[in-house]
Amino acid sequence: MTSLDAAFSAMADPTRRAILARLAKGEATVAELAEPFAMTQPAVSQHLKVLEDAGLVIHRVDGAKRPRRLAKPGLDSMDQWLGMLRKALERNYSRLDDVLAGMQTKRKGTKR
């Protein structure tokens, strides 16, 4: 579960979410990422390191460049986690559906 902890805490930062949003459009180098954020390259690298450690971003080596892209397995495991949360919530609410249906029937019954 360590990687999920790291992933959620990595996501709890607006700049890192913006970097992920940019990478969702395609691969980018540190220089390309630094530009729209008005940040220094070391600052962007720092954020990228957090994202890489969390398993959300990976890089490849292309000569002197290290283009970054989204890491699908990391994002998928967050997705799965949120999906389960939704399912657990839905279990409660489908139970509530049944309770509400019972309340309605009872009320109709007592009207007569």
């Binding site: 579960m1 805490s9 949360l85 919530l89």
Partner: peptide
């Protein structure tokens, strides 16, 4: 936002051992 991330990660469904186990399998 750190608290929100924590909440999404651990707090919201305390008793999710079952789901944890399922995710561990995945």
């Amino acid at each position: 936002e750190k608290t929100r991330a924590m909440m999404l990660k651990t707090g919201m469904e305390r008793g999710m051992e079952m789901s944890y186990a399922r995710l561990d399998k995945l």
